[in-house]
Design a protein around this nucleic acid. Structure first.
Lengths: 189, 189
DNA sequence: GTCTATAATTCGATAGAC
DNA sequence: GTCTATCGAATTATAGAC
């Protein structure tokens, strides 16, 4: 079945994912990751060949976490429009703290677009997973406009809301904008 | 009048501003800045005490550039609603290439919110200048909703659009979303 | 004021013992 | 497989000649 080192590699990816979200990719050293997992930093290179490789592992780990969260939303509600509303609502209490640090997938994409365009494609799958799930909910809801366009629009609104929340830290703006976004979702479903 | 070192300091800030936008703060070394200006990197510390200090100088430089751009928009159009429409249109050809690299002010804020929360407040003035100008245009246009809320909403939409543009590089999405944003502006003025 | 030289630290990555 | 030890390069920052 699985590779022998799978567990350790997955543990490292999970720790790196948290560190990338709270400090960014460039500001996370292998030392930081190694300390978070409790291994010497030299041992890191048994699991990964370079620091760049960890980005791919992090995104793969995030895809797994995302699948679980989206599956829970699908199980929790029959109405696809309500699922979307609950998704954006869940951001408020999400362990990744996107209102304080931005969307983990969007902020990683933006950082890589600037500093490491060669790695940008590695960060995109998580955002595309979100986009595809949004589109499916809109399609199931029988939205009037094209579900793909609505999905991209919603993703952009989410990214903008979370970037503003992280930089301005204005609670009343966060609440108001979140409510308006939920109203927009309902109006499209 | 001005300080003796004002010109060199301003030149450094301008170069650092461009590098922060294209590579990010953490990925821009003092060596990069020194090379861009054509001075030895040791000479940097005659103008700035630390690397952190350059963030404040960069934002101050950006405020000046922003003032000039907004003044040109005010001069070019009497209708405040049209000014807002032209502002978002101008992003397409802006030298900062926000569609490829994100909004320089928003992406700097997001990076600092993650990696250097102690420096976040230094990055905010540029975003707040934009917000204030948006609000003034909405107020002048006699918008029905509160101009401050409309301004924050517009800023969030812009940030979301540019983050998505930088990470997805989907030209048709960029055009469509830009057009929708302009339609929203017109509907509020 | 402007330059060279370099200190002090940290980084990603490697070598090799066990 | 897991550890220690360390390399070479890059980083921020300082010292001091001119």
């Amino acid at each position: 079945m699985g590779r022998k080192a799978e567990l350790s590699t997955e543990v490292i990816a999970a720790a790196a994912s948290r560190l990338f979200q709270s400090r960014g990719f460039a500001n996370t050293s292998l030392q930081d990751v190694a300390e978070a997992v409790g291994i010497p930093k030299g041992n890191f290179y048994y699991h990964f060949r370079t620091k760049d490789d960890i980005v791919r592992a992090v995104v793969e780990h995030r895809l797994g976490a995302l699948d679980a969260e989206l599956a829970a939303l699908e199980k929790g509600s029959r109405d696809p429009g309500k699922r979307l509303v609950r998704f954006v609502q869940a951001m408020l209490t999400h362990p990744d703290a996107p209102f304080a640090l931005g969307c983990p997938h969007g902020s990683l994409g933006l950082e890589l677009a600037k500093a490491r365009p060669d790695l940008l494609s590695a960060a995109r799958p998580a955002l595309e997973r979100l986009r595809a799930w949004f589109a499916e909910q809109f399609r199931l809801a029988g939205a009037s406009a094209g579900p793909d366009r609505l999905a991209m629009h919603l993703l952009a609104r989410v990214q903008g809301l979370l970037l503003m929340a992280a930089t301005f830290r204005d609670e009343s703006f966060n609440r108001r904008e979140l409510r308006e976004l939920q109203k927009w979702i309902a109006s499209q479903c």
